[in-house]
Amino acid sequence: MNNPLRYQMTEYDCGPTSMLNAVSYLFRREEIPPEIVRSIMLYCLDCFGADGVCGKCGTSCMAMMFLSNWLNGFGQAGHLPISSQHLFGQEVDFSQNGRLWDALCRGGTAVVRVDFEGWHYVLLTDIREGQVYLFDPYYRAVAFDDPELKMVGDHPTAYNRIVPVRYLERTTRDIYA
């Protein structure tokens, strides 16, 4: 059985939490080496807040790119059957020919950076019929005003939101864009 996915501990750790959730979603607990948990936490939370405190501005895109490369090396070394790709700009494509669609349809995951009152990382676990199934690590008790953004509580090992694909395809600064 897969592990339940986790929520953030702070206002800033959506990046490492989403990466850890990806590993938890893909592998059983006994398969996950502690080194992967250590490395995810080590490489994330690298941005400095306005007050100069490290981590108080979350995880940079560069840290995620580095972590993606590290995961590939970890997988190639035979420690865990895992591979990763870092996509940017036009490469982030939800079309049926796109790498995101392909990964999700084959049982993979994607950690993506979206707007959610500031930059925020979430985990995508499935895509069906124009809807993306995702786990947002930011705990929310109140439903969205927008009825197209669905909160789900009965799939703790896979997703807690269902969002139309078109929201994630937007390039404006809007929720889940």
Rank of each mutant, 00 (worst) to 15 (best):
K56Y: 00
C54I: 10
D51E: 13
G58Q: 02
L67R: 08
C57F: 09
A63K: 09
F74Y: 12
L67N: 01
G73V: 05
M62P: 02
T59R: 01
W70M: 07
C57V: 01
W70E: 06
C57G: 08
M65P: 08
T59A: 04
A77D: 14
L67Y: 03
N72D: 10
C47W: 05
M65F: 11
W70R: 06
Q76M: 05
Q76L: 04
N72Q: 09
G49A: 06
N72T: 13
S60M: 14
Q76A: 09
G73E: 14
A50W: 01
F48I: 15
L80N: 03
I82P: 10
T59L: 03
T59Q: 03
Q76S: 07
G78L: 06
M62E: 04
N72M: 10
G73C: 09
Q76N: 10
G78N: 02
W70T: 04
G73Q: 13
N72R: 12
W70C: 02
S83W: 15
C47V: 02
F74H: 07
V53S: 05
G78C: 00
G55C: 11
S68V: 05
C57R: 06
F66I: 01
S83A: 13
H79L: 15
K56H: 06
F48G: 09
G58N: 00
K56G: 00
T59H: 01
D51R: 13
K56P: 01
L71P: 00
V53I: 12
G78Y: 04
L71E: 05
Q76H: 11
H79N: 15
L71D: 00
K56D: 01
M62L: 12
G73R: 13
L67F: 07
N72K: 11
L71W: 02
K56T: 01
H79M: 15
C47I: 00
M62R: 08
F48H: 09
G55I: 05
